[in-house]
């Protein structure tokens, strides 16, 4: 029993919860949150895989990958949130919905 095993399994469960939420939740904000949970789950697996029994220090490459992954996920989240805000504004004011105009 090591921390890597415990947190790796934690990450897999979180991934499963996020997957379920992404498939079954209808509310947009909540679904986006579920996708973020998925991402955290994947990050857990990488960080757990990088862990080494002390006194060895952890493998830095997966750490760098996870940092990259976090930034990428935030970027995608920001775009999705902008879409959610815009859609909400348009849907709350039905009379102002622009026509599906030809390009």
């Amino acid at each position: 029993m090591t921390p890597a095993l415990i947190y790796g399994l934690t990450g897999i469960v979180v991934f499963g919860i996020g997957l379920f939420g992404a498939l079954c939740v209808r509310d947009r904000l909540r679904r986006l949150l579920a996708l973020n949970l998925c991402g955290m789950g994947a990050a857990f697996v990488l960080v757990a895989g990088a862990w080494r029994m002390p006194p060895d220090s952890a493998d830095p490459v997966p750490h760098a990958l996870v940092i990259t992954g976090i930034v990428v996920l935030v970027s995608a989240t920001a775009v999705a949130l902008a879409l959610i805000r815009r859609l909400h504004t348009l849907e709350s004011a039905p009379e102002e919905i622009p026509e599906d105009t030809p390009e």
Partner: peptide
């Protein structure tokens, strides 16, 4: 976007 994020993850 949702499908894309899920696929990437």
């Amino acid at each position: 976007m949702f499908a894309s994020i899920l696929g990437a993850l």
